[in-house]
Structure formats: structure tokens, C-alpha cells
Design a protein around this nucleic acid. Structure first.
Lengths: 184, 184
DNA sequence: TTGACAATACCGTCCAGACGGTACAGTAGA
DNA sequence: TCTACTGTACCGTCTGGACGGTATTGTCAA
């Protein structure tokens, strides 16, 4: 479909995430992103005609990547347990220090509406999980706990020690794996 | 200790929270807060000599209020189950539409360091919970799930229906209440 | 083959507006 | 008289973004 775009856009998106992480979410300026991407401000605005478009692209790329990764993880173990795949992917994502999607805070500060696609994505994913998980209680608890883990990573609350964290993950996976043991 | 301060400071703090919620976290300007509080900008800067001090005060007030409320809820049922009190308080807090502490996003955008007191508060609270909760697994799962609930409220992800939400809360409370049933 | 034109992908500069903060003179109540 | 402001004027800085250029590559008729 697309005529093999050069990687300028991707470079800019990555630069934006880097700037948000390193300079703080409130300092995500076009100049800073342009510098970081090794491009001029004019060039940036050529690729993304406004800051809003840049934010939008950031959200869209994140969603696309997450969806793709989920599909891979889920397929890799025979599409048996979506919840378990979701947990493992989320945990993995939270471990990458490089990830720390603090550009989300920039987006919210810019305009909370930027998160609308994220909201609908989450709602749809939850519906899928609900359809595929027999034990609703276990789903609710594990899903929310993962959401909590994501939040703590995002805000950089280092409340849990490594051991506690590992114990938590084990508990969640065993709750999620319960669909073949306990299934009502 | 303090000479019965007039309520100007409180009015300003409340106004700041209102502005962040209504105008968006990125539009928390001193002018906007002053207007909202029905005070002049000079008056605002008389009470809080810089925006940083205002943010700081916002965080401190939130922490003080939460701590006080937790103490009340905990005492009210005989100081039996701290985790259960924590869950009930957090759930209550998430239900107040008026709360929606989106000033947190403003603070983060301003400077992530503003959340340092929040971090230490959370860590200490978790330690207290750990000391008082026999079942560490249950604590981890419920604590994280509450953190998830808080995050979803903050971001206004309306992923859960009312029924699902209620089922979740019941599950968490029963997990938390387990300290007298299952206690190892 | 070549010259004319056009699209792509930028660069660098400039500007208007917003924002935090200062300064200061005035004032009303305790 | 002191405290706790109000109100206004102003400054310096930062930021989004508009705009006018430019180098490179592609297209295509003559």
C-alpha cells in the first residue's frame, strides 16, 4: 500500500519517546524532538504537520505494536490461553526499562482526547478476554493487577521488591492458567 | 501548631484541582488557578511563591487526607484488617467523580520529582500492609488490583461495567478477608 | 538524450502568544 | 501598624507553527 516510506517517521517517533523519557513528559517540544531525531524542525513538521498529529501517531504506533506482539505471543503457544499470553506480554513490556511510555503523560497534558484510541483498544481487548476466560472473577482480578503493574511501571513507583514481583507474576499466571483446572 | 490559616490556601488548592480536571492537566496555569479561586495572581503568589510550591502542596495535601481517611476507616472497624480498610477506602475514592486527581498529570508534566513523597508514602504503606497481612500472595494480588483500579479511574478508562466492577471488589475483599480464614 | 517541470523531503528563520514570575503601589480589616 | 491581600504593568523565555527557500529524484514529452 504505502510506497516504502523512508524511516524518518519512525526515527521521529522513537526520538519523541526518548525525549519524553529523558527530559520529562512536560518537555516534549518539537525542537527537542527534531534535535534528538537529527532533523530540522521544518523537516519534523513536514512529516507530522502538527504536534497533535505526532501525538496521535505515537498512540497509534504503540497500539499497533502491542497488538502485533500479543498476536505473536498468543500464537506461539498454540492460541490456548489468551489471558496468560496477555499477562506474559504485559510483564515483559513492564520490564523493558527502555519502554517506559512516559510519552503518554505528554499526550494527556496536550489533550486527554489523544487516549481515546487507547480506551477503545483496552475495552475491546477486555471483551476478547472475557469471551475466552471461563472464570470471570479470576479474569477481573488478574486483569486489574496487570493494569496496576503497568501503572506502577509508568509512574516509576518502585514499591515491589524483585521477589515480591516474581511471586505476584506467578500468582497471576496460576490464576490465569486456572481455566483448565477450575473451569466451572 | 499553625495559627489557624484562613482558607485561602485551601481555596487555591481546590481551585487548582478543579482547573486540572476541567481544563485538562496541561492547562493548569497560575492565571487560571487564580481566576478559579476568585483571587488575584498576586494573591496566589503571595500564598504559594512559585508554581512548584503549589504542586508540592497539592501532593502533600492529598497524602495527608488519604492517611487521615485510612486511619478513620481502619479505626472504625476495630483496627482488625488494614488491607480490607485500604481496599474499601481506595474503592470509595475511585467512585467520587469529583476526585479524579488529574492534577497528578500536571505535576508529572511539571517535574516528575513532585511524586517522590507519593512514592515513599506508597512504599511505607505497603510495608505496613505486608507486616499485617499473613497471606503475601493475596496481598500482592489485591494491592496491585487496587492500584490498577486507581489507574483506570485516573486515566478514565471505562473498561469495566458496574457489575464487573462490583464482582471485582467483592473478590478483592474476600481475598483480603482471608487472613482470618486461610491464615497460614 | 535532453530539457522542463514537478513532487518529495527536508532546512532555517521568524513570529505571535502563553506562561511563570517580579515589582510595586494601593487598601481594607484586625 | 501589620497582615493579607488586589490590581496592573511588565519582562524574559519558551513553543507551536507558518513560511520561504533548496537539494534530490522522478516523470515525460519533444
Amino acid at each position: 500500500m504505502k510506497p516504502r516510506k523512508p524511516n524518518s517517521r519512525d526515527k521521529i517517533l522513537a526520538a519523541a519517546a526518548d525525549v519524553a523519557r529523558e527530559a520529562g513528559p512536560g518537555n516534549l517540544s518539537l525542537d527537542a524532538v527534531a534535535n534528538r531525531a537529527g532533523i530540522s524542525k521544518g523537516g519534523l513538521l513536514y512529516n507530522f504537520p502538527s504536534k497533535a498529529r505526532l501525538m496521535q501517531a505515537l498512540v497509534e504506533q504503540y497500539l499497533r505494536d502491542f497488538d502485533k506482539a500479543l498476536e505473536e505471543v498468543h500464537s506461539a503457544d498454540g492460541r490456548k490461553n489468551l489471558l496468560s499470553a496477555y499477562i506474559r506480554l504485559s510483564v515483559e513490556e513492564c520490564q523493558e526499562t527502555e519502554a517506559s511510555a512516559s510519552w503518554i503523560f505528554s499526550a494527556i497534558a496536550e489533550d486527554p482526547e489523544f487516549l481515546t484510541p487507547l480506551k477503545t483498544f483496552k475495552r475491546q481487548l477486555f471483551e476478547r478476554l472475557k469471551a475466552k476466560t471461563p472464570d470471570l472473577k479470576a479474569l477481573l482480578v488478574t486483569y486489574l493487577a496487570i493494569e496496576g503493574l503497568r501503572s506502577m511501571t509508568l509512574f516509576e513507583f518502585h514499591t515491589l521488591e524483585d521477589e515480591e514481583r516474581q511471586l505476584l507474576i506467578d500468582s497471576l499466571l496460576s490464576l490465569a492458567g486456572a481455566d483448565s483446572n477450575i473451569a466451572g
